[in-house]
Design a protein around this nucleic acid. Sequence first.
DNA 1: TTAGGTGCAAACAATTTGCCGTGTT
DNA 2: AACACGGCAAATTGTTTGCACCTAA
Lengths: 131, 131
Amino acid sequence: MNSKRYSRQRELIYETLIHTTEHPTAEMVYHWLKPENPSLSLGTVYRNLKLLADDGRIARMAFPVERYDANITPHPHFRCDRCGAVYDIDLPYEKDIDRAAEEASGHQIRVHEVLCRGVCVKCRKEETRSS
Amino acid sequence: MNSKRYSRQRELIYETLIHTTEHPTAEMVYHWLKPENPSLSLGTVYRNLKLLADDGRIARMAFPVERYDANITPHPHFRCDRCGAVYDIDLPYEKDIDRAAEEASGHQIRVHEVLCRGVCVKCRKEETRSS
DNA sequence: TTAGGTGCAAACAATTTGCCGTGTT
DNA sequence: AACACGGCAAATTGTTTGCACCTAA
C-alpha cells in the first residue's frame, strides 16, 4: 500500500524524534538538522513528518484549528476522526489524574484535559447505512 | 486591571458560544453572526475570542502548533503554561476512561489523550529564584 | 529506467496587527 | 473629550504544494 523507498532525510528526521522527549515542532526538527545538513529544506521536514505520522511511526499531537467553548468548567471532549466535530462528554473531572501526574512528574499541575477520539454516533450511522 | 467597556460585538460572540455545544472555531462564529450583522469583521471575532479567553469567560482549546512524538504508545503529556515546553508523564494508560466515555456519550472511542497544564519544574525554580 | 524524493519558492490557511474612524463612558 | 473598540486590509506565521531535478531500486 505505502510504497516507499529509503530516504536519508526521512531517517534523519525519524532518528531525531527517537532521540528526544521534547515533542518538537517541525521548525525545531529543521533547525536541529540544518547545520549538519545544509541542503535540507523545511518543506521536506513537513512532508516527512506527515509521512511518518500517516505510517504510524510517529504521533502527531495537535488540534487542527483553535476551538472555543463557553463552558469553562473543565470536562472531557470527544473529536470525531471522520467529520471533525467536537462533542462534550458528560463525566466528572478526575482530580486523581492531577494528583497522580503531579507526583509522577514533579511539575505543578493546574488542570488537565481529556480528549477522546474515534467515530461519532452520526458518522457511525452513515457508515452502517452505506455498507 | 482589564479595563473594558461594553461592546455589542463581544456580547454577541459570547452569547453565541453560550448557546452552542459545537465548540466552534472563530470562522464558524463569524459565519453564524455575519448574516444578521453584515458589518462584523473576522478580525473582530478573533480579537474578542481572545479577550474573552484571557478574561476566563470562555475556554480556548488547542495546541498553538503541531508537535510530534516518536513514542506512539498513548501516554499523558504536560505542557508548561510559562515556557510552552511539552513533557511526557509516566503514568499508565487508563482504559477505564475510554469505557466510561463511550458509555456516557455513545460515540465509538478509539483512544484518548490526557494533557496536563501548569508550571514545569524548571520554570518554578526560576520563579522562586527571582522573587 | 522509473517512480518516489528533494529543494525551492510560491500558494494557502489561520491568526494577528496597524491604522483610522466610531461609540461608550 | 478620552480612549477602547470595530472594520478593513496588510502582515505574520504555520503548513502545503507544484515543478524541475535527483536518486534508490
